[in-house]
Write a protein that binds this DNA or RNA. Structure first.
Lengths: 151, 151
DNA sequence: GCTAGATCGTTAGCACGGCTAACAATGTCG
DNA sequence: CGACATTGTTAGCCGTGCTAACGATCTAGC
């Protein structure tokens, strides 16, 4: 019956993670609003800033979103002047997304603003708990990658 | 400089948690779609099913959402026959949200379906990692509660 | 008892995020 | 050169979230 117990554990854990993800994002949304950057835009901008110029399709795959959705997000970022489109010279179908210097600045500022709430909460944690939470975040990330590979 | 290091840790951790939350929800959305229940609806339904009859305002606060948003979500659940509104006899302003039996069934089925992906990923984890991830989820939940109390 | 204010929920209207279907433009290969 | 594949965009739908404004109801205070 130990496998039955594992299933129950997995179900309970999935529920906790699901609920935590929803509520965390709803909290962070408020801060994101202050910077004018929603979570999906911030996330995409982060990829562009740290991942260098990237095609729209790559960005869509990285963000696990369909191309039309990414077109929409990039258009928003472009109108805000945080990103610019540039056609590839060798392959006319591709459009490469570049971060502008404003985009880099806004990303850094947005990260700082976004983390304020979390940071003040994190500072109430002991060193042990901080390490444990870090470990949990790493495991969660690996879990998501594993889900992605499994389709 | 140790406090500076804590800040950097907090920033990096916040980024990881933010990114993980986004990508986890995007994955789970696909499963949620299969059951016809989006993440916010599933989350709200869960509160109604396990938290007994609840007023719309309580539900909105529990889900950290403004009343008009919750009105919309509840309307969707009601149209799907998962929930029903009932006026309070003592206070005519209140509307209590009750789960229907169909709502209970659908919630359970949705949870199972939703957890399939995660469960198969979780089963690739060792017992130690499972415990660590569970601890991380618990800490994350406490962190969110702490953020909520701090506004 | 009645009026003034507070509270609760809804409606209206906006912006964004996500999807599918359909299309145009470009590359590639037989 | 022509058929096919790939890339990105457009159009159109629905769900989520907000604020502003409103109607209905309760509660105080006079």
């Amino acid at each position: 019956m130990t496998s039955r117990k594992r299933e129950r554990d997995a179900l309970a854990l999935a529920d906790q993670l699901h609920s935590a993800a929803i509520h965390l994002l709803r909290h962070l949304r408020k801060e994101d609003d202050a910077s004018g950057l929603s979570a999906p835009r911030l996330s995409a901008l982060s990829v562009v800033v740290f991942g260098g110029p990237v095609t729209l399709g790559q960005l869509a795959r990285a963000e696990q979103v369909k191309p039309p959705t990414m077109t929409h997000i990039v258009t928003g970022l472009e109108k805000a002047g945080l990103v610019r489109r540039e056609g590839d010279e060798r392959d006319g179908r591709l459009t490469r997304i570049h971060a502008t210097s404003k985009g880099q600045k806004v990303l850094v500022a947005g990260r700082a603003r976004r983390v304020e709430l979390l940071a003040s909460a994190v500072e109430r944690l002991g060193a042990t708990e901080l390490a444990e939470l870090g470990r949990g975040a790493q495991l969660l990330k690996e879990l998501i990658d594993s889900m992605r590979r499994a389709q």
